[in-house]
């Protein structure tokens, strides 16, 4: 489904990401892990055509991402720049509904599983800029998921969420995958959640994919050892 071919991204002559080849098949749940500044977000932003690669090309379903055909079946949430902060949570989700062409009853049905995840106690009618970081993020993640995309891209979805919400989100992702078979690309620093949820882990360090393998019982421990030893040594 996703093809990265000879991708590199340079800023001011400094290469921040170099991926000769990387692929994701239909229905895979892939976890993207790495230290701060390793290049995970750049990896995702290139996929969503928010930045231009210095070299190479990314394709989704055989079409270059620059053509934009993928947008109709992709849900994504990277950060607060994906939220319209002068709308309330309800208004924002309604706006997303219209973008993806859902009727109101369809949207109500689609949102039903997310009601326990979304902010409550009147927060749904507050402007997003007045919500806490965690609650605003819940709205953003829901907006990416409830339209039942074939491709879901999330950056750090577990960060800033309280523990019950993290568990709830993990279950929602599992349920969505079981129901739709969507391809999911999830970047996270939370090794426990990401290895628990994802069936494949791509480890990025200093802008390079240094490990890309199916998740096994040992993956969590291997990652812990990798990061405990210092990723610098590994990259060297």
């Amino acid at each position: 489904m996703i093809y990265y071919e000879q991708i590199s991204k340079r800023y001011d002559g400094r290469t921040v990401l170099q991926v000769p080849q990387w692929r994701a098949g239909d229905g895979e749940i892939i976890g993207l892990v790495g230290s701060n500044g390793a290049g995970k977000t750049t990896f995702l932003r290139l996929l969503l055509d928010l930045i231009e690669p210095s070299t190479g090309e990314i394709k989704i379903d055989g079409q270059p991402v620059s053509e934009g055909n993928w947008k109709s079946f992709t849900g994504s949430y990277l950060d607060q720049r994906f939220l319209i902060d002068y709308l309330s949570g309800d208004e924002f989700l309604d706006f997303i509904r219209t973008i993806y062409g859902l009727s109101r009853p369809e949207a109500e049905n689609a949102l039903a599983p997310y009601r326990t995840f979304l902010p409550t106690n009147g927060d749904a009618s507050k402007y997003l800029r007045d919500l806490s970081t965690g609650n605003a993020k819940k709205v953003g993640i829901t907006a990416a998921m409830f339209v039942s995309p074939r491709l879901l891209v999330l950056d750090e979805p577990f960060a800033n969420l309280d523990p019950p919400s993290q568990l709830r989100l993990k279950q929602l992702l599992r349920d969505m995958h079981a129901a739709t078979g969507a391809t999911m690309l999830i970047s996270s620093h939370d090794l426990v959640h990401v290895t628990d949820l994802c069936e494949r882990i791509t480890l990025i360090d200093k802008g390079k994919v240094v490990k890309d393998a199916p998740t096994s019982d040992e993956t969590l421990e291997e990652l812990r050892v990798y990061f405990a030893d210092g990723s610098d040594q590994h990259a060297a």
């Binding site: 928010l50 947008k71 994504s76 720049r81 939220l83």
Partner: peptide
């Protein structure tokens, strides 16, 4: 929020 607009449909 332009990033969010352009990443969506």
């Amino acid at each position: 929020y332009m990033e969010g607009m352009l990443a969506r449909s």
